[in-house]
Design a binder for these strands. Structure first.
Lengths: 226, 226
DNA sequence: TCACAACCTGACTCGCCAGTCATATTGAGT
DNA sequence: ACTCAATATGACTGGCGAGTCAGGTTGTGA
């Protein structure tokens, strides 16, 4: 993160306190859900008084949006670090796509509480009817779609990906990511689940998903060709 | 629906009143979301006193679950009517799958408020940590997966569908259903959306989605073969 | 040592609403 | 017409928790 450069100690401390509040809020929101989380508990967890939260965030809603924004930022960082777009030119496309999916599954598998928070609250806020909040999520959605679309367009240039509607293809990939992620989380949490043993690790999930995304569910016209 | 047979007038009236309450509750939950909906408004909308609701449902939560259960039941009925499993033997598989997807998109497009309610509340309840409520949704999920799995298994028998993990295939299809449905709803509500014009009707969506599901995103080895 | 600003604090307020219950209404049987 | 059981009603209560604010603390500069 950005260190002392051009920031007074005061400012750095303020940022650190804000960060501690966000971390505590993320925990409590993830455990209880937005509506059942109380500011008292968040303040307690962050070791501040409740009033202090209001020196940093103007409302409970703003705090939630800040938490979610921080999550997306962390996610983008992780993905973009582990998935250099330059590799697209050198490595085979299938490997690149595999790495991308694996990076996503691994990230959310390691942060499953945050994933669950995101699923719960993003749907609630997105359908809340408030256009500002819908736009907030739409922007993040667009950003992920753009990332995905860029990857696909490289595939098309290389002749590996069908030259069709990249929007639909990106949407298909992202939707499968979301649902397979859910099965993954609920399978290894030993919760109620109807998933077979194929879904026990990010690698297994990618192995099951990737061929379907690339070659579809239809039987191949001939059995052997590579 | 089941009519007078074996039901006294008393019982029929009671059911009708219950139904009116469910309908009002569905509207209010869809408009406001569960947490912001009040029993007063639901009672008002159903033209009953609030206390009367408690003669039919023991709590606000039970009311929500009843609303969702009713939705799923209506959905199953619609789908199973419009999509006779017997046709699987006679019609070409691709047509059958197309009909199935179209029936789903059309149903939820015509009932988009209910779809939004379902998305919002099912995620909230599913991740609530209450195993009973998670199981409620898991059962519905299983039922849809079973329906889908049956269709796929027919395809495998006919040699049209790849003989692979039907669970993964069913999951892929259902996840794409959910996300493409969302794009469909937000595109024709003229809301914030980044979808291209391909997503303007259930037919368009199916046309974009079906080839991807069947043949994948990879470029075909040769350009023409049907 | 004092003054002042920046910041922290948690008891309190106030609106909200799920759930209750004493009372009113209805209608079927006699 | 009267009774009784089933059902409806909505004013009320009790708990909750977001947001406030008067008073406390800290640290800096003079």
């Amino acid at each position: 993160m950005a260190l002392d450069t051009s920031l007074t100690r005061r400012e750095r401390e303020r940022l650190a306190r804000r960060e501690a509040m966000l971390e505590a809020a993320a925990q409590v929101f993830a455990e209880r859900g937005f509506d059942n989380a109380t500011l008292d508990e968040i303040a307690l967890r962050a070791e501040f008084g409740k009033g202090t939260l209001y020196n940093y965030f103007s409302s409970k809603d703003e705090l939630l949006l800040a938490v979610i924004d921080r999550m997306y930022t962390q996610f983008y960082t992780t993905i973009e670090e582990g998935f250099a777009i330059e590799r697209l030119s050198s490595a085979p496309f299938e490997t690149v796509l595999r790495d991308f999916l694996l990076a996503c599954f691994t990230y959310f598998n390691d942060n499953s509480h945050l994933y669950m928070l995101l699923m719960r609250e993003s749907h609630r806020l997105f359908f809340s009817g408030d256009p500002e909040q819908a736009a907030f999520f739409m922007n993040h959605h667009k950003r992920v779609m753009t990332l995905m679309g860029g990857v696909l367009r490289h595939g098309i240039e290389q002749g590996v990906i069908r030259d069709a509607d990249t929007h639909a293809m990106a949407l298909l990939i992202l939707s499968s990511l979301q649902h397979f992620q859910m099965e993954l989380i609920f399978t290894d949490d030993t919760e109620v689940s109807c998933a077979p043993s194929t879904f026990q690790s990010p690698e297994h999930v990618v192995d099951a998903l990737l061929p379907l995304l690339l070659h579809g569910t239809a039987a191949p016209p001939r059995p052997s060709s590579n």
